[in-house]
């Protein structure tokens, strides 16, 4: 019978159950006749078992604050998914991590830049049915939004009135160490994502985007670069943990 020569790669694939049926049978035959070959296979079986046992059965602990942060992200994601079908797939390149600043984080909803900063919150507070475009109110005028920014935990949804709601997505500090909150607000069926930061004892709107364009059409995910640029430019840090956020917010009152 023809004597096969098997490389380490093939013997390892045999040990890992990765060979096709035909090659597997050939290795079966060969190791039945060749003790050295059988030992080589055993080496691959043993290394796998050892590594699996060493790393696999040991209980890896997760620090409480790390788990809290991830659960916070999970809660925000679930709340967002529950809020509607507005979640759109981001381009995979956003996951590639190319050229991103060290402390960046991603806004969790897709949005298109459509609002002049300053307009959204006045619009929200007034509860006007018109689209946000054209509203001219600077700063954060809406008391209920301010209250929600001051008090609600990220992941929590606050009803602001009929068809109007607020949800804090994350809290972080920007490059100037100002406390910032990224939040989602919707009114009259239009959803917005915005960032407000504390400045001189008051919240200032720094960024706002809606998911509709000037003609009222739904525009998914077309302005992530703008949001990225904003976060990069402002030196956005990673989101605070549940505890850090609670502490930071309690300091506001």
């Amino acid at each position: 019978m023809h004597e096969d020569k098997f490389t380490d790669d093939v013997l390892m694939a045999y040990a890992d159950g990765e060979l096709d049926a035909q090659t597997r049978r050939r290795v079966d035959d060969a190791i039945g006749r060749d003790a050295e070959l059988a030992q080589r296979v055993a080496l691959f079986v043993k290394t796998r078992a050892l590594v699996a046992e060493t790393l696999g059965t040991a209980k890896v602990s997760i620090p409480d604050d790390l788990e809290a942060r991830v659960r916070q992200m999970a809660a925000a994601a679930e709340a967002e998914d529950a809020a509607g079908a507005d979640v759109v797939p981001f381009a995979p390149r956003r996951a590639a991590g190319k050229g991103h600043a060290a402390q960046r984080f991603f806004l969790p909803i897709a949005a298109s830049l459509a609002l002049v900063a300053g307009g959204l919150l006045g619009y929200m507070a007034a509860g006007q049915p018109e689209r946000a475009a054209g509203i001219e109110i600077a700063g954060l005028a809406g008391e209920r939004i301010v209250e929600a920014l001051n008090t609600s935990a990220s992941g929590e949804t606050v009803e602001l009135g009929p068809e109007a709601s607020f949800e804090a997505i994350a809290t972080y500090r920007d490059g100037a160490n100002a406390l910032c909150r990224e939040f989602e607000a919707s009114a009259g069926g239009i959803s917005h994502v915005a960032v407000a930061c504390r400045d001189d004892e008051a919240w200032q709107l720094r960024f706002a985007a809606s998911q509709v364009d000037a003609e009222g059409r739904f525009v998914p995910a077309s302005s992530m670069e703008a949001l990225d640029a904003f976060l990069d430019a402002s030196g956005a840090g990673t989101p605070l943990s549940v505890d850090e956020e609670r502490k930071a917010l309690s300091g506001l009152r």
């Binding site: 620090p63 790390l66 991830v70 992200m73 994601a77 981001f90 995979p92 991590g97 969790p108």
Partner: peptide, 18 residues
């Protein structure tokens, strides 16, 4: 490692649609 886990989760949730 903990930084990496956090950054990975942030990206995972942001990109969960993909």
């Amino acid at each position: 490692a903990d930084d990496l886990v956090q950054q990975t989760c942030e990206k995972a949730f942001a990109n969960r649609g993909s």
